[in-house]
Every structure is written in structure tokens, then in C-alpha cells.
Nucleic acid binder design. Structure first.
Length: 119
DNA sequence: TTCATGACGAGGT
DNA sequence: AACCTCGCCATGA
């Protein structure tokens, strides 16, 4: 494999601040794999390379598409609400309000870490 | 090694 | 709004 995708996904997810959410597509971009949002989901569903706050990842519409893959179906919703993220009855969050928007410096720092750790 | 499987996303109907 | 189709490609069996 060219790079360790799973480790990158884990690293990026751990960079998502408490109280914010990121989309699969966004994670893929930050992993420098722009066409792999689906693979991000694959990785997370298998545990995501270490301890990862996978509940902060939602789809491009803000929907908690992975909710049923956690220990219990409401684990993701409860986790998000516990850190201040409002989850609608339809199991969606407002990306405008809670979407993570990493500064360019933070994105560069992640790329640097990929390089340093050879992943 | 090949092959089926998706926690996706964009575009179309 | 609510489907449906298709391209995508890292995993694991």
C-alpha cells in the first residue's frame, strides 16, 4: 500500500475538536485521498486504527449515517449531545453550526505528521 | 491473488 | 423531497 490510510483516518479524527463534527469527504481530503470518503467509513466501522472519536463523523448532509455501527444505536447521538452538539429527531446535525473548519496551519500540521511518521 | 463489500458523494430522475 | 445509479478504492476473507 502507498500509505497507511487507516492510521491517517485515526489521526485526522483525533484532531476533530470536542463539540464539532467532520464529514467523511472532509476526512478523506485531509488524508490526501480525495476520492475515498467511502473508505473512511470502512475504516471507522472496523475500529478506526486505535482510539478514535468516530462519533464526530457524519455524512455530507449532517446525517449520523454510522449510528447503527456503534455499541448501541444511540451511542453516537448521546456522545454528541454530551459534548454540546444538538442532534435533530431526524438524526442530523447542523453542519453550518457544528462543522469543523480546520485552519490551514492545522491541515499542514497533519500532513507534516503523516510525513514524519511515514504513513 | 482475486473478489465482494460498503458509516460516501455527486448527479440524475 | 425522495429515490436511483454509478464511480470510487481500502479492507479482509
Amino acid at each position: 500500500m502507498a500509505v497507511n490510510f487507516a492510521k491517517r483516518v485515526g489521526m485526522v479524527c483525533r484532531a476533530i475538536p470536542r463539540g464539532r463534527v467532520a464529514t467523511y469527504g472532509q476526512i478523506a481530503l485531509l488524508c490526501e485521498r480525495p476520492r475515498c470518503p467511502r473508505q473512511v467509513g470502512n475504516v471507522l466501522s472496523r475500529g478506526g486504527g486505535g482510539e478514535v472519536p468516530a462519533w464526530r463523523v457524519v455524512n455530507s448532509q449532517g446525517y449520523l449515517s454510522g449510528a447503527k455501527s456503534f455499541l448501541t444505536p444511540d451511542f453516537q447521538r448521546l456522545s454528541l449531545e454530551a459534548e454540546g452538539v444538538a442532534v435533530s429527531p431526524g438524526l442530523t446535525v447542523d453542519l453550518k453550526r457544528y462543522g469543523w473548519r480546520p485552519a490551514e496551519e492545522e491541515q499542514a500540521a497533519l500532513r507534516e505528521r503523516f510525513k514524519n511518521e511515514g504513513i
